[in-house]
Every structure is written in C-alpha cells, then in structure tokens.
Amino acid sequence: MRYPVDTIARTILLLCAVQVVIVILGVFLFLGLKAFNVFGQGATITGFLFDTHWDPMGLGSADGIPAFGAGGLILGSLVITLGSVLIATPLSIGLALFLTDVSSPVLQKIFRPILEVFTGVPSVVIGFYGLVVVVPLLQALVGNLTGNHVTAGYGWGAAIIVLVIMILPTITSISIDALRAVPGSVREASLALGATRWQMMMTTVVPAAAAGLATAVVLGMARAIGETLAVSLVLAGHRVPSWDQPLFNIFFQPNVNITQYIAIDFGESYGAGRDAYFTLAFVLLLTSFIFVVVSRRLSSKKAYL
C-alpha cells in the first residue's frame, strides 16, 4: 500500500542520493573533456608522459610554442608517493599492532584520541611545520654533503618526510580496523599451541589481516598522491632539476610534482595552457580511481568474514 507522503519522500530523497552519482560523473565528464583538448594542440600521449619539458603556456620559448612534457611532474609524484609509503607503512602497521595486541587498555585510551586529533590536523599546518622545522633541519644535515648550502632542505626529501607524517594516521587507522577484525579465537588458538605473543602476531594475526592491511596501504598511497599544499610548500621548485648530478643530490633541492605545479601555475594559466592542467588533474583522477578499485578488490578477500 503506497502512501502519498512516502512517495513524495522517496522521490525527494532519491534525488539527494543520486547527487553523489551526478557529481562523480560530472567530475569525470568535465575534466575528461577538457583534459583531452591538449592532445589537439600538439601533445602526444607518450610525449605527455615522458618528456620533461613542461611549458603549457609557451612562455619559455621565443615563438610561444607550448611544451606538454609532464614526465618530470609525474616522476616527482611517483617518487614522493612511493618513498613516503615505503617509510610510513612499517611504522603505521607497527603502531597498529602495538595498539591492538601489545598495549594495555589504558594506553589505548590515551593513544586513540591523539591519533584522531592528528588525523584532523590540516595539511597546510603540517606543510608549515615542514617548512619551518624539517627544511632547515635537512639543510643542516645534508647541505654539506650535496654542496648546496642554501636550498638543500627543499625538494623530494622534505616532501617525503612531510607526506609520511600526513599518511601515518590514515594507514594506522585502517590497519587497526583490519587487525581488530581478526577474531580473538584465532589469537587464542595460536597461543594455546605454545606461540609467543610475537609469533602469534606474525604468524596468524598479520596474515589473517593481510587484505585489510593492503587496503590501508593503498588508501595511504591515494592520499599521498593527491596531497597538495603541504607538499607544495616544501618542494618549492619551478622546474625539473637536471640529471647531471648524483642521485642523492636530486632529493635535496627544489623540485616539482603534479599537485604542486598545478597549485602554483594554474591560477595564471589560460586557454590551451589551462587545459593542460586539466589533463594533469585527470591523470590524478584516474590514478585515484584505480586505487579505489584495487582497494575494493582487496577488501573482498578477507580471510575471516
């Protein structure tokens, strides 16, 4: 039996629910349309991905011909994302294990709020901290080693450190959920067979939570690749550094990545040059989407449901 008020309510509420779909479809559609313009302006896909000369407004060349080589930007994003995930993952999972299987309930009660508060700290504040503390610190530590006495604190090194700080809470929170989802009976069974606590954790709990932990890492990666302002402040570069230097040095000088360059240049761009930034944004969009799909596949592979 249908009641009028229910029919009206249902319709209105359905419209609300559909908003989500409309928005995400709109994002893909509009960004996608704009993104592909740039290939009509002389850019090629391989050129876009692998050339490192990025000058979408053609300001750098005498006859105003733009260059759409985003390779350097993409490399920057890849390096700092992978670097930060590699460092943050063991720390996060270690912290999560500590909170679920080692610490006393009292310690957990203290730690959990700290973690929550830290998740809420705005990225720009971390970026500010990075600029004011991490960069000078790196400068002092590394400046002499690279021969760069002024700007050695900036760049990939600082960005990786800042990103680690930012994604630690994310990976930790999701890892805690994954570890908690392993039933207590698994832990009991392991201990009853004569395992030490560490053995129990490493041989049963972590393998059982593997899918959830992998999801945590993937989501941490997604967060890292999209991080903008914090990373912007410490990368502080305007062009891709030259390759004629020791690899170590490249990590410690002003550098670029996708989000940072969008942040500094998009505002002044126009026309076809602006479209190039939409292409970059679309690349980020696709990458995040892939991460979502991967994490969903992983989530469905839980050992104990």
Binding site: P183, V186, E188, A189, G194, A208, Y304
Partner: peptide
C-alpha cells in the same frame, strides 16, 4: 608458559583454522 602449552593443548568451541 610457552612450553607448558606445548604439553597441555587446547581446542576451542569454534573451530579456528589459521588462514594457511
């Protein structure tokens, strides 16, 4: 205690095989 549990074993109400 670790050694004790290898001499006195226990099986629980819910069968819990490890994910192996």
């Amino acid at each position: 205690v670790i050694e004790l549990r290898t001499k006195i074993g226990m099986v629980f109400q819910h069968p819990v095989p490890f994910p192996k």
